[in-house]
């Protein structure tokens, strides 16, 4: 690949990478660094994929994992504060509450590393299980299993949280 090709690819896909990183990290400077890192990691694949959609799958996979790791490395305030015991709602109620993107992002911080990208793509980005599976190169069954695990964790956290009030 010539240098011009690299520049062309970066100009073409860089905006999508940057927007992706900004949406997860929020911080502009961190998103800048994450954009560089993501492009370096996906560059080889961008040169080989047959379509823009496939290129975006690679970008979303690498950027999501990288940025969620960066979030984990940040210091952050506790997600929930224990209160008195309350009756846990049914899981489908949890799903409705997770429609709130901000709440979802906070709950995802406490999730298992393997669950985080699945939960983020589904609950925060609003993608369906099929697309989540394609982006992360997982089976749909694995996606469903991890979403179920996340819902269980979220239920427990919400039960203890002041957010029930």
């Amino acid at each position: 690949m010539t240098e011009d090709r690299l520049t062309t690819l970066y100009k073409t896909y860089g905006p999508a990478i940057y927007i992706r990183c900004r949406s997860i990290l929020s911080d502009e400077a961190e998103a800048h660094d994450a954009t560089q890192e993501t492009f370096v990691r996906v560059y080889r694949h961008l040169s080989e994929v047959p379509s823009d959609r496939e290129a975006l799958y690679w970008i979303y996979r690498v950027a999501t994992n990288y940025c969620l790791n960066e979030l984990r490395n940040r210091k952050h305030r506790p997600l929930v504060h224990p209160t008195g015991a309350e009756e846990a709602p049914a899981l489908h109620d949890v799903e409705r509450r997770i429609v709130n993107r901000d709440l979802a992002a906070r709950l995802i911080e406490a999730a298992h590393p393997k669950v985080k990208p699945v939960a983020w793509l589904y609950h925060v980005d609003g993608m369906d299980q099929e697309e989540v599976a394609r982006i992360l190169d997982l089976s749909r069954r694995t996606v469903a299993t991890r979403l179920a695990a996340f819902a269980t964790t979220a239920q427990k956290l919400l039960r203890r949280s002041e957010l029930w009030a």
Binding site: L56, Y60, D125, M127, D128, Q129
Partner: peptide, 10 residues
């Protein structure tokens, strides 16, 4: 996305 009536980021 199936979970949203709007366009996804993808």
């Amino acid at each position: 996305g199936m979970t949203s009536p709007h366009l996804t980021c993808l």
